[in-house]
Amino acid sequence: MTGVARRVDAWLFADGPAGRLAALRAGLAVILLLRIATWPFVELAGAPPSLFRPPLLLAWAQGMPPAPVLAALQVAGVGGAVVAVAGSWRGWRGTAAGLRVGWFALLVLGGFKTSTGKILHNDVLLLLVAFPAVLASARARIGDRRPGSGFGWPVRVGLTVLSLVYLLSGVQKLRHSGLAWVFSDNMRWILHDAIGSGMAPTTAVATALMGSALLSTLASLGLLAFELVIPVALVWRRARLAMAFGAVTLHSLTWLTLGLDYWAWSLVAALVLGLSGWPRPGSPPARPAG
């Protein structure tokens, strides 16, 4: 292992407090629960085979499952998530298993949801960031301050995944559009199309941004800068709360202007960045990385 690889490995698998892993599990389980319980997955049951385009993961499926199967997955997912939330408070042995059930249910249900014609990214960040926590088997309880590598790595890997996802989103914009993504009328046309679609709860914000070349350019610049800069949070602990605020602002504006349902992204970003960036009682006032 080279020096850099050794340092990366040491950072990823460094110690962390048990309570933080428990809080991560509880937070992810709450978001999983909300995503599974609040979308009418059973209504997908009517999708005909001719319009069914499953992702690789569900290539074995001949068509959309019947409503009872989708409902059973939903119930199991909600049950698993509830166990994971309660278990994180009580330190139950079945907490990790509950989270796995909830995660797997959303993986399959979300996969079927994205089999109807369009790749839907709404649940992708949650599923990817939760994967390390799903792999982790360490028992932990909220408030538990025992340190250990087994408690620390799911949070750090989750933070790394979060940064990678936003970074890739930014890099793809540069790769396919270059600086024209910012310094052209791109954002104004995005807003133009959004106003036409009528999906947003209001057209006031989109209209105001679209009407000003300066504001729309600044919005594009801010969005792209956020996506490209977020990996700084990996090495600069103090930046994490600001990045969490940035993510919530970004997705709130996306909803207000485009009407796109990315609240799960907001919650996941706030959870992971907040948990790893929030100063703990008794911790030193400032550390360069953590």
């Binding site: 490995d9 040491a10 698998f13 460094a14 110690d15 340190p147 008794g282 550390r287 990385a289």
Partner: peptide, 8 residues
């Protein structure tokens, strides 16, 4: 006190 630095 929990250490948070780059140590394993």
């Amino acid at each position: 006190r929990v250490r948070t630095g780059a140590t394993s």
